[in-house]
Computed example of a mutant assay.
Amino acid sequence: MKNSAHTQSTTSLPRAPHDEVHSRSTRYLIMMGVRVLCFILMVFVQPFGWWTWIFGAGAIFLPYIAVVLANVGEDGKTINAVPPGRELEAHPTPPPSSDAHDEVITVRETREIPHPDHAPKDPS
């Protein structure tokens, strides 16, 4: 296993792809709602004046801005990593007492192959 000087922290991981797509879709839909509002205000606000041109520009240019912002991922954002902290204090363990018994535990990870003399006979 590689030891690295910088350990990966859960708080320094990027967002999940599903969450990132949801965030971009929400941002796009909000901007399209603002565009529709600009269009409605451009048509219905009376008397026409300089704000009519602002609403018209919003209705025209917001789709382009919304698409560009929706396609930009969050790769460029810096992630403020929080270093993991120690939750429990580590106390030194006392040395084992002299009357403690050393036990050996054997773990077998493969099944035992029976000897050919002890193999079950085929009843056929």
Rank of each mutant, 00 (worst) to 15 (best):
T93M: 08
H18R: 11
M31P: 01
P94T: 04
H18K: 14
D117M: 06
P83Y: 05
T93E: 06
W51G: 03
S4C: 08
P95W: 00
E74C: 07
T106E: 12
G76K: 01
T11F: 14
F61R: 05
I113N: 08
K2F: 07
M32W: 08
S9G: 04
E87L: 13
H6Y: 08
A81V: 15
T52A: 06
V67M: 13
M31R: 14
A59R: 02
P92D: 10
I30S: 11
S23T: 13
V34E: 02
R35M: 15
A16P: 03
M1T: 11
M31I: 06
P96R: 05
D117C: 03
D19W: 10
F48K: 07
Q46E: 07
H115C: 04
V36L: 14
P63Y: 06
T10Q: 10
P116G: 00
M42A: 15
A66Q: 01
V36A: 12
S4E: 11
K77T: 09
K2D: 10
Y64P: 01
G73W: 07
T10C: 03
Y64C: 14
G33N: 11
T78Y: 09
T10A: 12
L41T: 02
V68Q: 13
I113H: 06
P120I: 10
A16W: 07
A66N: 01
T106Y: 13
H22F: 09
L69F: 05
G58N: 00
T106M: 09
L13A: 14
D75P: 00
E74H: 14
T110G: 04
A119Y: 07
D99Y: 02
A16H: 15
S124N: 14
W50C: 01
W50A: 14
